[in-house]
Design a protein around this nucleic acid. Sequence first.
DNA 1: TTAAATTGTAATATTTCTGTAACAAAAGAA
DNA 2: TTCTTTTGTTACAGAAATATTACAATTTAA
Lengths: 226, 226
Amino acid sequence: MKGKIFIIEDEASIVQLVQHNLEKEGFVVSSSLNGNEGLKELKKFEPNLLLLDWMLPDLSGIDICKNIRRDSNFKSLPIIMLTAKGEEEDKVKGLESGVDDYVTKPFSFNELHARIKAVLRRSDPNIVANDLTFEDLKLDRIEKRVFRADKEIQLGPTEFRLLEFFLTNPKRVYSRDQILETVWPNNVNVESRTIDVHIRRLRQSINIKDKKELIRTVRSSGYSLV
Amino acid sequence: MKGKIFIIEDEASIVQLVQHNLEKEGFVVSSSLNGNEGLKELKKFEPNLLLLDWMLPDLSGIDICKNIRRDSNFKSLPIIMLTAKGEEEDKVKGLESGVDDYVTKPFSFNELHARIKAVLRRSDPNIVANDLTFEDLKLDRIEKRVFRADKEIQLGPTEFRLLEFFLTNPKRVYSRDQILETVWPNNVNVESRTIDVHIRRLRQSINIKDKKELIRTVRSSGYSLV
DNA sequence: TTAAATTGTAATATTTCTGTAACAAAAGAA
DNA sequence: TTCTTTTGTTACAGAAATATTACAATTTAA
């Protein structure tokens, strides 16, 4: 069971795109093109997550948010807000009125999907896959543990995130910039060479003697798993 | 054995939803769509708990309640009343006529489930799991006692709730925010560092020499049991 | 009411983690 | 080979997160 997602968004093309893709991912999806009706349908549908357009013809996103948060049955419904580019103040307002995350339009489905999983993982962990594995490596996001060949490995927080990142796309080569963007908290400035050091630390931790090296260096491109 | 639940409710869709979910949870469920018949069937069925709609076409919730309380065989049958939104006076009347709890429609199944467990825990402790255990730790929700290796341990109220929380999902790592949300009463603002102190107190209480530490610190993530 | 227990916070100590710089080693290029 | 570029390794100081302690305020019990 992947969970139920409700969409309130007035641009039919977006709804169609998102709904179709989410259903392909195994979610049960329902949607509404306007706010007032959407609210009613949503409460019947009882989703695990709401995708909410911030600019609707009838009701503003804030109003919907408030309404939802006031209803004891939906107080903790995770909400991801869809906002048009440049409406920076809206983001602030959104986060203040209890939105869990936001995605700026236009967005790629992959980006949205990642956000959805992240939000669901926090609010409703059973809905989302929590173990990442690759060969004899296993990372448990719930218990925050890492195993190589069934032996537990201790990692620092950054090494953990780094490995988690590689495990979401094994084999794929990531540049230092890509790694930096995803693994490090936003608006943090670190030397790109710093990654080398963390790679070293990660290697040191996950390598077992007689077992093959798991992190490959791709000269002038970056690193990848195996 | 999870116990038997009877439902008297005239909206077939609600009955279906609730009955289905309760059966999935292991309860034996029977139901009736109207009051007079429901009363008869109920007495044959001999449930451990009754879910009672307050607004029925034929008999009012109060009448049913009175009838039940007058019957010596069902004097102490726990009743949860289902009431439509805004019927505040009904709640008062309900509680006066011996209802144990009420749930406002529309409700989520999870909410109802929680209420049912809470009511059964009080009235019929054998039906509901009241002991949380993990390795040699045992927490008794009824008597509010905690044991480690069969030796009783004294905990303050907050430490008790904290441990109870960890025991509902052992091994899982919880962030300070999650702990705060669940363990502390709502809309109470406490410093997130305060949790560290309570963790310390809890550790101090449940740790026995020569026995392993039960609470794991996961740097930058939170805490978990073992 | 007094005494005891409980709570939250702030201050301090301790531990662990991070980023960087400096140098070594390796891989390409010429 | 020799030079250049890129990556590996190491050590270390400062930063960040957690542990511990003490204390005042509040609640509960006696």
